[in-house]
């Protein structure tokens, strides 16, 4: 295992070392410490690495992740795992706004809560939040699944495309074109699998499912807000 102390090395040095593993894999396991909330830690990874980050991180940690398993043992700033393509990002604490924004694939797990716009414009990833999510979560979300074990803030799923949202707790309000939909056996099975992969012990039967009413898919003047 390689250990990098960010009090002694720059984020640039760390990221370059991690990126170098793509062409020549020297070390699969990485430990990062003394993060001091710095931005852009471990972004652009494209190798099957295991990166443990000890401390809080700033914006865009693990941005555009491919293949790597990144664990943040602390809180994460805005845009954690933004545009992730594959792999797993696990935040042990809370995550700020736009967690998993535009992510195409992979799994984002947040043990705590997230701020606003969790899963905004997501394009196929799975997100499991064990706490609550803030307002405008899944705004214009296109594909993938958001699971919220706590409550969801205002305007959940506003202008939603084909992302599926499961919420166990209360939903403060639904956004434009987002509606509650029935939960079938197929949905329960998928939800159970997702919860298990995130290490969440909730009962899938206690969740409600939300999706797009598909009324905004083609312009109708009566739908204009």
């Amino acid at each position: 295992m390689q250990s990098i102390n960010l009090a002694e090395h720059s984020v640039r040095q760390l990221n370059q070392l991690l990126h170098d593993q793509y062409n020549h894999l020297d070390e699969r396991q990485w430990d990062v410490s003394q993060t001091s909330g710095q931005h852009n830690i471990a972004c652009g990874l494209n190798q099957n690495l295991e990166v443990n980050i000890h401390g809080h991180v700033g914006y865009f940690c693990a941005g555009m992740n491919q293949l790597a398993y990144v664990t943040v043992h602390g809180n994460a700033g805005q845009g954690v795992a933004e545009n992730m393509m594959s792999g797993t990002v696990h935040v042990k604490g809370d995550a700020s706004s736009a967690a998993g924004a535009t992510a195409h694939g992979g799994l984002l797990i947040v043990d705590g809560n997230t701020g606003a716009r969790c899963g905004i414009s997501m394009k196929g990833c799975d997100i499991v939040v064990k706490g609550n999510v803030g307002h405008m979560s899944c705004f214009m979300a296109q594909a993938g699944t958001l699971v919220v074990c706590g409550d969801a803030g205002e305007a959940l799923g506003d202008s939603l495309y084909e992302t599926v949202i499961y919420v166990k707790g209360k939903v403060q309000s639904l956004g434009a074109d987002c509606i509650e939909k029935p939960v079938t056996e197929k949905h329960l099975k998928k939800l159970k699998k997702l919860l298990k992969s995130a290490g969440a012990e909730e009962d899938p039967a206690q969740f409600k499912r939300y999706g797009s009413a598909r009324q905004l898919y083609n312009f109708k003047v009566d739908n204009a807000y």
Partner: peptide, 29 residues
């Protein structure tokens, strides 16, 4: 990553940053 045939209206603002200070960090990313 859209259903075929929908009217696609792409967002007018970026999803994961707001304002020039955030943009500085986005550029660095």
């Amino acid at each position: 990553t859209l259903p075929k045939g929908v009217d696609q209206r792409s967002a007018c603002r970026h999803p994961d940053w707001t304002g020039p200070d955030d943009l500085t960090i986005k550029i660095q990313e």
